[in-house]
Design a protein around this nucleic acid. Structure first.
Lengths: 224, 224
DNA sequence: AAACCCAGATTTGTGTGCAATCTAGGACGG
DNA sequence: CCGTCCTAGATTGCACACAAATCTGGGTTT
């Protein structure tokens, strides 16, 4: 679902820039997004900014209330559950589809990403939870791209955004984090073995593990 | 996925009006959508029209090419298959979720819709395939709403649009059409019986039947 | 005759002004 | 003291104007 076209128009530039800003966490969830503020920051006028906001609203990244402007989306516990239900319905299937399409280079790259995540994710001196976010995006994104199924991928895209905005890896307890990293490695093994059902099963477990972590974190935050 | 808010702003008005125009078939698939033309037709300026177009593009109803305007979406055979894969992944699940939430009134209404579809859909003097389209939308829409799962429903929405734009019932052969109408009745029976798995299975069959019909029709059209 | 090229016309992209709406804060009355 | 009303500032929604890009048709060249 990444934008691959040249994007010469200001609107596309604004969409990509703003999406990246939000996904990278420059704006906290719930933050107000003033049109003039964004226009200044992105170096364009309000018009392309408005169009970018409507588009990101359609992607689910921002919420748009008439006459009251835009905010970075927030998710209630129930909404978060729903988002992970959606991932559960789609991402294991996409993973299974990706398996027969993965060539040696793809497996190699997935393996590299999984190993790198273990490096920066393991507790200790070198741990860097923020570095985990882009690596994780890349890992899941590669699998989705390999699947070669734009319709499913498009439907999944908005569901993948939610946990990213919530800066997820900081909410993992150590056990769940290790489990999650192990899942990545096991998915690579399944892909290498050419076993779609194995990959599907591990991805399902991976998502349900993440769901448990995120739901617990969101519930705690709601009660605070 | 239906817009329930008052929608006082011109943009919302434009989105809803334009979506309805496209779904009702006022514009054929692939038709060019000029901004000034739409602005005149909807009685607003180009600005809200542009925002409506970007939103409908996100819903998958229109395709937006930079500097070259908007067209009503067309689907290749491969894309159509993908869209039905998405429906297969989501709609049976939503149907199963709807079963325990349906009250007597809901069952009654679904039954009424299913019967009405048999009336206007059965070959003979009273057959009116165009009248089938809104009834079918209503039937599936009710089930989705009952499920009470906004995340899944949102992801499904774009997938439901595609067959509607293609004015689907004209492409059904008689056997497939009777089968489709029977599915509706059987889903009502499953809901009445409170059996989610039954409902899920029939909905899966319903979608695969539709998929076969649409794919065949699209392939013929592509070879013409 | 076919391909190319170039200007005019049309259409989209962007900036900006103004009206409508919302928000914050204080004055007023209970 | 608390709640309501009202006003001022700020922000969004929309329309319009201009700039940039694309499309069309006719004429020229090979």
């Amino acid at each position: 679902m990444t934008q691959t076209s040249p994007s010469v128009t200001g609107r596309e530039k604004a969409v990509d820039a703003l999406r990246e800003l939000i996904l990278r966490g420059d704006f906290p969830a719930g933050a107000r997004l003033g049109e003039v503020e964004l226009a200044t920051r992105l170096g364009v006028s309000r018009t392309p900014v408005r169009e970018a906001l409507t588009r990101l609203a359609a992607e689910g990244l921002v919420e748009l209330v008439p006459n009251r402007g835009a905010r970075v989306s927030k998710w209630s516990v129930e909404e978060l559950k729903g988002v992970f239900d959606l991932r559960t319905a789609l991402e294991p299937e996409l993973t299974a589809l990706a398996v027969p399409k993965a060539g040696p280079d793809d497996v190699e790259e997935l393996d590299r990403l999984a190993r790198r995540m273990v490096e920066v994710g393991s507790p200790g001196a070198g741990q860097d939870l923020d570095a985990l976010v882009p690596l994780n995006r890349e890992f899941h994104g590669r699998l989705v791209t390999l699947a070669g199924h734009p319709a499913l991928a498009g439907a999944l895209a908005s569901a993948v955004h939610a946990p990213i905005v919530l800066r997820n890896f900081h909410t993992y307890d150590e056990t769940s984090l290790r489990r999650s990293l192990a899942h990545h490695a096991e998915i690579v093994a399944a892909v290498r073995a050419g076993d779609p059902e194995w990959a599907r099963a591990v991805m399902t477990a991976h998502i349900r593990n993440a769901r448990a972590v995120m739901v617990r974190a969101a519930r705690e935050q709601e009660n605070a």
